[in-house]
């Protein structure tokens, strides 16, 4: 808070762009490489640790490379009640990786996430930006095949 007051407001307002810059890079590069973080820090006049701090705070930003397709399966209670565990298991089986990993060919990353606001279609998951709901294990291979 006191930091807020010390700095001139114009500089502070520049920072508004930061999250969008990081999200954009995440989308294009698949992660936020060290060099990119350093450059962004330089251009906004912020320290590298500030940018790194933001980059690691948000679950949709990543400082390690993610796969081309990111699968996020919801594990919160409403989905859990609708057997999200079966979906998690079948993705694990299909991709041969566990949550937090990326396939060796770099095609898929697989993560668990909290409620994605699709509990009326539980169990649900995000594949990149798209919601897939009322999942059953037999639907999984098809969804994965559709990912380039």
């Amino acid at each position: 808070m006191s930091e807020n007051e010390k700095k001139p407001l114009v500089d502070e307002r520049e920072r508004e762009k930061l999250l969008a810059i990081l999200e954009d890079a995440q989308g294009k590069l698949g992660y936020l490489p060290e060099g990119f973080i350093a450059n962004t820090a330089h251009s906004l006049g912020l320290s590298i640790s500030e940018i790194y701090g933001v980059s690691t705070f948000y679950s949709f930003l990543s400082t390690r490379p993610l796969g081309k397709n990111v699968i996020r399966i919801c594990k919160s209670v409403p989905c859990y009640l609708k057997n999200s565990r079966m979906i998690i298991e079948s993705i694990q089986k299909e991709l041969g990786i566990t949550p937090g990993e990326t396939t060796p060919d770099g095609r898929f990353s697989f993560e668990l996430t909290n409620c994605i606001g699709a509990c009326d279609k539980a169990p649900a998951m995000l594949v990149n930006d798209d919601v897939h709901g009322t999942l059953t294990p037999d639907k999984i291979p098809e969804v994965l095949r559709a990912c380039v």
């Binding site: 919160s76 209670v77 409403p78 909290n114 409620c115 606001g117 699709a118 509990c119 009326d120």
Partner: peptide, 9 residues
């Protein structure tokens, strides 16, 4: 973000 809430969506 509240678990179980999807009305705003």
């Amino acid at each position: 973000g509240e678990v179980g809430t999807f009305k705003d969506r």
